[in-house]
Design a protein around this nucleic acid. Structure first.
Lengths: 171, 171
DNA sequence: GATTTTATGTCAGTGTTGTTGACTTTCCAA
DNA sequence: TTGGAAAGTCAACAACACTGACATAAAATC
């Protein structure tokens, strides 16, 4: 059970013996876990007739208040037309405020209104609750491994975004 | 670096001190990692003008050859109409074979053809390569934690599916 | 000062993937 | 023989992505 295979060689070069089967299970775990990961917010969003795209926008605006549209675009990896559709409804509904930049007036800086903050809290509470439960069930050591593998799986550009967000707050 | 916080109490009850910030970073890691996770297959699928839905069908048919449409439906969590559209094109294109059940002739058993197997291999090779690289980078201990957290994050029903697939092959 | 580039927004059209609802066919089982 | 489950089909629709074209304002550059 807790027995481990030889995984490090004298050279310091760590060598993992990973069968295709083990890798495949990792792939399936990602698939099924992601469904769980989005399930709770999806339920909340459905009530308010929003979608995942709205959630993502809300999340990253909350995370980086005052971010520009362009910055959000590169984080989300969608076209401006796609993002704009979502942002427009959020602004119309009074969840997001778009302020013209002071230094560069071409830019729009995005902020959540109080209503937007409230929805963000509702969504992230649900998601954090599941994440917390998963962490507790898996144990403290698992959390580090989880994060390490996920980070290694990211595309370099997204990883840069991830780490930028990370640095903004605590370690 | 390798220092750990107090994470277990005498009672045997493990207690994790997780700030909202730490949980939020886990959430973002899932988001960014999933993008990387699907990036390679997406590129391959685009060439052949298929989508993720086709990939998922191919994957689970490959995983459980002879599976029925109903079983596939409960794994994928979509409507039969949605799955049917995808299956129809895969059958028309000669990637999937649908055989009428012998015991129960209402059921259709799904198999990959040689062409289907070839695409499956191409897709899963790409995905496994990234997974292998991530595992190597994160180290052997991380892999266990990764899997443990993902499994704990799944909805119970999906977890049952996951474990059923797991048991079918090696440990 | 004129030109180009950048940031943003918008309109129109298209494709994939999901949904509901209604309906049919097949066929097992009570 | 009748009820219901499994599978398939058709139609309509919605969310969310895409491309391409175009407009506007402001910054940057020549």
């Amino acid at each position: 059970m807790t027995e481990t295979r030889p995984s490090a060689l004298p050279g310091g070069q760590s060598l993992l013996f990973l069968t295709d089967e083990q890798l495949r299970k990792g792939i399936e775990a990602m698939f099924f876990a992601y469904r769980g990961f989005t399930a709770d917010p999806d339920r909340i969003l459905e009530e308010k007739s929003y979608g995942r795209a709205h959630h993502r926008a809300i999340h990253f605006i909350s995370r980086s208040p005052g971010t520009t549209v362009n910055n959000l675009l590169s984080i989300l990896g969608v076209t401006k037309q796609s993002l704009n559709r979502v942002l427009r409804t959020l602004i119309e509904d009074g969840l997001v405020e778009s302020r013209v930049g002071t230094r560069d007036k071409r830019e729009r800086h995005l902020f959540l209104t109080d209503v937007g903050e409230a929805l963000e809290r509702e969504l992230s509470d649900a998601q954090r609750t599941r994440m917390r439960a998963a962490y507790r069930e898996a144990g403290p050591e698992a959390v580090q491994g989880f994060r390490a593998v996920l980070e290694a799986m990211m595309d370099p550009e997204l990883r840069r975004h991830f780490n930028r967000l990370k640095e903004a707050q605590d370690g």
